[in-house]
Computed example of a mutant assay.
Amino acid sequence: MPKKCFSDVDEGSRTSSSLRRVLIGAVVLAALTAIAGLLAFLTRQESPAAAKDSASAAPSPASPSPQTPSDGDESVTPPSTSDPITFAKAATKALWTYDTRSSSQEKHLADLKRWMTDERKYADWKSIADQVPSAVLWARMRDNHQHASATVGEGHFPQAFKSALAADPGSITDAYVYAVTVSGKQSISWKDSGTGAEARSTTLAVQCRPQQACALVGVLPSVAP
């Protein structure tokens, strides 16, 4: 297992209040009350967002065609795709991948910001920034030569989102925000041949408007099954 003192910051404790800014209709709210994390994310006071029922209800998927990364790392540049699951899996890899030996904390944050939607009323940048160690911790990790890679496996739409959209199929057409749960493994290495790996899961909010490439909205405070 990775050294705990140098692990990624606690996702749940620091994002629980950051994702309370997306409003959905009363029908969708009722459908999501059983999952506290999703409810926290979907109670914003600005514009409706809702669940996705199935891949057939998604925007017409386009074959992912990743742009050429500026620095040779495919985890840095968002893929140009209209498929929420494809995008969420790529975004998850970016969130779980870092290298303190060659990148500063500031640059790492700048790389992640490129994944965000430019619609301010939906973008929850704090929930993304909270996944990154503080500048002080990053410096300690750099002293330890810590770096991490990620292997992303399965991605799916949580059951609560599928149920919510089934109850109100038109609710998705306001914000086109989808929840996607992704599972995989993060491998961490540090100096003196130290290594560790752990299975991880996360639920992301992804915006995929028709005829537009998907963009990241935020990270939910808890994993939705």
Rank of each mutant, 00 (worst) to 15 (best):
I85F: 05
D53Y: 11
K89G: 02
L19C: 08
L32W: 06
V28M: 01
P79D: 07
A31Y: 02
P69Q: 05
V76Y: 11
P78G: 08
S54R: 09
S65E: 10
Q45H: 12
P64K: 05
V28P: 00
V76P: 00
A58N: 09
T68R: 09
P78V: 06
D73S: 12
P66L: 07
S16V: 14
T43H: 07
I24D: 03
L29Q: 14
D71Q: 10
A36C: 03
A88I: 05
F41A: 10
T77F: 04
P64S: 15
T33K: 14
A88R: 01
S75Y: 15
T68E: 08
P78I: 06
E46T: 14
A34Y: 11
L39G: 00
L19P: 01
G25Q: 04
A62H: 03
L29P: 00
Q67G: 12
D83M: 04
D73P: 01
A31V: 01
T43K: 11
S54T: 15
G25A: 06
S75L: 09
R20V: 08
T86D: 15
S18D: 10
T68V: 13
A31W: 00
S54C: 14
S54W: 06
P61C: 07
E74K: 09
I85E: 02
D71S: 07
A49C: 14
F41Q: 01
D71Y: 08
P64C: 15
D71F: 08
I85W: 05
